[in-house]
Design a protein around this nucleic acid. Sequence first.
DNA 1: TGAACAAACGGAACGCTGTCCCGTTTGACG
DNA 2: CGTCAAACGGGACAGCGTTCCGTTTGTTCA
Lengths: 192, 192
Amino acid sequence: MSDGAKPKRADAKRNEENLLDAAAALFVTSGVDVPVRAIAAKAGVGTATIYRHFPTRADLIIAVYRHQVESCAEAGPALLASSPGPHAALGRWIDLFVDFLITKHGLAAVLQPDNPSYETLHAYFIDRLLPVCAQLLDAAADAGEIRPDISAYGLMRGVGNLCVGAGHDPRYDARALAGLLVAGLRRERNSG
Amino acid sequence: MSDGAKPKRADAKRNEENLLDAAAALFVTSGVDVPVRAIAAKAGVGTATIYRHFPTRADLIIAVYRHQVESCAEAGPALLASSPGPHAALGRWIDLFVDFLITKHGLAAVLQPDNPSYETLHAYFIDRLLPVCAQLLDAAADAGEIRPDISAYGLMRGVGNLCVGAGHDPRYDARALAGLLVAGLRRERNSG
DNA sequence: TGAACAAACGGAACGCTGTCCCGTTTGACG
DNA sequence: CGTCAAACGGGACAGCGTTCCGTTTGTTCA
């Protein structure tokens, strides 16, 4: 057994790729809430096919953005190594995360854990990114740069929430607010 | 013409009150997204009646929460007068605002300006609360307690966003995050 | 090559929701 | 008490997510 995956039919594989392409394109123009029928139509398949390949919308969203989430996760340790300090690395990594979210229309809004339909999506983001954030946070706390009383989970959800609805309103700068949040957890300096 | 208001029929007035009561009760148990039919049923009216009195859901939400929003707005100047400093007053006022939002299930989520159906709601909150926030912010800036480069609009929306989905997850503390945000705009101290 | 079967398909159908329409009722007033 | 506009109720319609079922198609094996 070289690969554990089950062999898939050629048409099934092709449809799955078409669906991913169609979804990716429509997510950009119409947000992640685009109607299922629209995705199916663009991919040239029936509505049932989309459910066969991606049982929930969360599964489809994860598949579309998996690569970018992985990149974001991998950037954490790299930033920690290349930045002047852990707090600076955390700030830069949060910027990456914010930039990712605000370019994905409606994604931040469905990242809420209270939405039963998007549980999988929330779980994926937490599983993949929370450890990265926690590592940066711990490093900054160990270095004495920040107050140690903030949880990585709270910070991640806070930053995610700040990105809800961003990108539509030039008066609203999610990145600046996230920066404010990171600045706010800086420890009071002991000496001038 | 002692009052500019048009005289309303007795049944219309009664229905409007019933609708407000029903909506207030259902908003608590099921969130502000509760189906129109449910509100109408609880109030003992037809679905059309609710649209006659409150053309959009935003109008209904505003009517239900108007008193509490007014209280929050009026608390601003009072806090400014009674707090040790403008920055402290701002922090307390933000706490009031957060406490209000997190107890209204789903309210923060529909406060986004990009949702055309809730334009009125967003406008109402901005009209009523933005000047209050701006006054506190200006006072703090004048006192040199904070960096002056944050807009009241950005701060209000940021805090509002932090409250999205709060109240369901004990691990997520919107109030603490809002406090972090307020702490983050504190100016670096010049002397020890 | 072609028969047979399971995998996969498409679109109709269902239920839920917001919204609108229209025939009917009812409160106000002379 | 008659009249009429205001207000009403619930059915009708459209859009959406989801499921079901008869049909098609890729694969396998003789």
